[in-house]
Design a protein around this nucleic acid. Structure first.
Length: 283
DNA sequence: ATGTGTTCCTGTCCGC
DNA sequence: TGCGGACAGGAACACA
């Protein structure tokens, strides 16, 4: 569910409650999410101080002063919520535990971080901080959309000769990291490219034009605090609001909003996943 | 190497 | 009000 903008929004919400703070207590309420938790996770977290909250693609990276990094993935339905009163000015009680609260971290400033994930496609792992980039989950990720290494020639090279639909290529985290179903649909709509088009058969000029479009969609969505459909919440429990800016995603049957287009957004299925697009202006 | 389909899990919504 | 089926932001994995 959460794509790069949602994960970045959560990271920004967690950072003030966690950075510089020691983890006083780690309550691991089940043995696994998508995979088993790492050995002795509670012991390895307890007493560790969070140095920095980072992000790579859709992974949140909590660097600890134990030279280990906690790697967190939210899967489809994962949430990380901050409760309590980090400044100690009030006496806010923590909310009662909810169904699917799987990991609870109590910080020394009184903040409580709760990882809730109904579908349990999320994941947590610990690795040596120096080896984070080489972690199996991260090693093959492509560039960040807003980084320098993601540029026109890079994307042209990576799509060259590919027979797969451009929709599938942009969902491939090895080509570009962080996009998911929503932002791929939105970017292709903005760029006027049909999601069904074979990636290797799109002109270099149109691929080049896609690059700033992807950057803009991601930046705007971060600015808006991500997109909330049903599960996603920011770390403070608030909804994102980029869903109100959707031009294509989740708009089946609605008019295309491109000026002068007059088309209707349709839903098709590609690789088992919904694609929303306008056949009138996306070619 | 590249492309496609299946699978993990729970919750919600829609039609009957 | 219940029941079955489709579908949901991801991505590892198995297989052609």
């Amino acid at each position: 569910m959460p794509e790069l903008p949602e994960v970045e929004t959560v990271r920004r919400g967690l950072a003030p409650a966690m950075e510089g703070q020691k983890i006083m207590r780690a309550d691991i309420r089940r043995p696994d999410l998508r995979w088993p938790f790492p050995e002795n996770m509670a012991d390895r977290l307890t007493g560790a101080r969070v140095i920095r909250m980072g992000r790579r693609s859709k992974y949140i990276l909590a660097a600890l002063d134990t030279d280990e990094t906690l790697i967190i993935h939210l899967g489809m339905s994962g949430r990380m919520l901050v409760s309590g009163d980090p400044l100690g000015q009030f006496h806010h009680a923590h909310p009662a535990p909810q169904k699917h609260d799987h990991v609870v971290l109590d910080m020394e400033n009184g903040a409580r971080i709760t990882f809730n994930d109904a579908r349990r496609f999320g994941a947590m792992d610990l690795c040596k901080t120096a080896e984070t980039a080489a972690h199996p989950l991260l090693a093959k990720l492509g560039p960040e959309p807003n980084g320098n290494t993601f540029n026109e020639t890079y994307l042209q090279d990576r799509l060259k000769g590919r027979m797969t639909p451009i929709k599938s290529a942009l969902l491939d985290q090895r080509i570009i990291a962080g996009l998911g179903n929503i932002y791929v649909c939105e970017a292709l709509h903005r760029a006027g490219i049909a999601p069904t088009r074979q990636a290797g058969r799109i002109s270099a000029a149109r691929i080049a034009a896609l690059v700033p479009v992807i950057r803009a969609v991601i930046a705007e969505a971060i600015e808006a605090g991500g997109s909330s459909l049903s599960d996603y919440r920011q770390a403070d429990g608030e909804l994102g609001y980029f869903q109100h800016c959707f031009q294509a995603y989740d708009r089946e049957g609605a008019p295309c909003l491109k000026p002068g287009c007059g088309g209707v957004i349709q839903r098709i299925v590609q690789s088992g996943r919904s694609t929303f697009y306008c056949a009138q202006c996306q070619r």
